[in-house]
């Protein structure tokens, strides 16, 4: 695999994954049964994990599978089942049409900025690095991204890394304290 050319199989995989992801994301916000929309959320998260693999981020795809598909979706499904005796479905506010218009305007604006308003050629890896540098970049992305990622987390971003771990600990303790039986 190289940095510039994309084989046909990757194109095909991208389209299948992105269509599945977007359709199931729409299903999450549109289906009335909350349990089913949680199941469609799992499909969305799996699709994003596949997109991470296409982008050469296998470690992040594994993290996505373990944290999102493994832990967060199970938490959400448990919460839905514990509060299910209310049988309220998945109702929307009365101002959902203006909100939908705002979301569509946001997507169109982002499309305009991405395709028309930004000159990506000046910043692309394939055009700004020479052959030697591109070889190094291909190694970093496709062969050994995990050692580089670990080195980066523990050197340049070590303060943020430690703060995130403290935040996770505080969140776990806070969640326990909130739902504790008194």
């Amino acid at each position: 695999m190289t940095l510039t050319t994309e084989p046909f199989a990757i194109e095909l995989a991208f389209w299948i994954l992105s269509v599945c992801t977007v359709i199931s994301a729409i299903a999450v916000v549109q289906i009335q049964d909350l349990f089913r929309s949680a199941l469609f959320l799992i499909v969305t998260l799996l699709g994003v994990a596949g997109l991470f693999i296409l982008l050469g981020a296998e470690f992040l795809a594994g993290v996505q599978l373990m944290v999102y598909v493994g832990a967060i979706s199970v938490l959400i499904i448990f919460a839905i089942l514990m509060t299910r005796d209310l049988e309220e479905g998945n109702p929307s506010h009365s101002f959902r049409v203006p909100v939908a218009i705002v979301a569509i305007i946001f997507i169109l604006f982002a499309y305009y900025v991405i395709t028309q308003d930004t000159d990506w050629n000046g910043r692309l890896i394939s055009e700004n690095l020479d052959a030697e540098q591109q070889k190094v970049a291909a190694t970093v992305f496709f062969k050994e991204s995990i050692p580089y990622l670990a080195k980066m987390l523990l050197t340049d971003f070590v303060l943020a890394f430690e703060m995130v771990s403290v935040l996770l600990l505080a969140a776990a303790l806070g969640a326990l304290a909130l739902v504790r039986d008194r």
């Binding site: 992801t21 979301a103 946001f106």
Partner: peptide, 9 residues
Amino acid sequence: AILFGIGLY
């Protein structure tokens, strides 16, 4: 951007 918009809605 599309995923972000759907989530925003």
